[in-house]
Amino acid sequence: MAKQIEVSDLDAYYGSHKAIEGISMTIEPRSVTAFIGPSGCGKSTFLRTLNRMHEVIPGARVEGKVRLEDQDLYGPSVDPVSVRRTIGMVFQRPNPFPTMSIFDNVAAGLKLNGRFSKSQLEGVVEESLKGANLWNEVKTRLNKPGAGLSGGQQQRLCIARAIAVRPQVLLMDEPCSALDPISTLAIEDLISELKQEFTIVIVTHNMQQAARVSEKTAFFNLAAQGQPGKLIEMDETSKIFTNPTQKATEDYITGRFG
């Protein structure tokens, strides 16, 4: 179910401000691609253009093409709702629905399509929670509110919720930045398991994390504050971290700025 994503010459705006400019890249299926770069370089904005979440912000818009296999996500007949249904997302801060139980949180996306029997739902919820390595911790309290879990558990709940609808791609926007080291490790392990099945794109501030989990790494940078962010280079993760072609990448990796 994993798909290749191809981006060509993409710009994204907030009102009249151009946040990212001229980005083209190919994201391989069944692999983990990491986006790194200093704050404000547009890596999160770019991630949000991949499932049309960018345009949710008032005044925000996108120019360019994003192709999932052979379909343009920004094509005139494409409904952004179905794009988001196909390309799942996990956010920086865990955001389970506070009024829903753990079970209902995981089933939320499925219920939208509304054609599942109770046993089908139970099956998918169990499978998704197992997939998110959370099943053993919550199987006895599926009817308790999701907000009662720890931060790391909540984030894994959000991952379970995202994979329950069987997306073709999973986007993760700094999924560990609000978590402690142990929870971070659990999520990283989970990412390596999930890539068997999904195409994963992860934005991270943590370069060790990018090195640990990803096959490919893309480095973003901006010339100056207020300038649009650009893709500087993208390559095998091992190459980016040992022998980058660009000076800016090397400076960033070695901690000279950012």
């Binding site: 709702v81 249904r85 799942g88 939320a108 996306g109 919720r161």
Partner: peptide, 22 residues
């Protein structure tokens, strides 16, 4: 909360479904 509204939208909810959920 904006983060829950975005969670609903990212699951593929329509505007009304997002309002109902979040």
């Amino acid at each position: 909360p904006r983060i829950q509204e975005e969670a609903a939208l990212a699951l593929g909810a329509t505007r009304w479904e997002m309002i109902r959920m979040a």
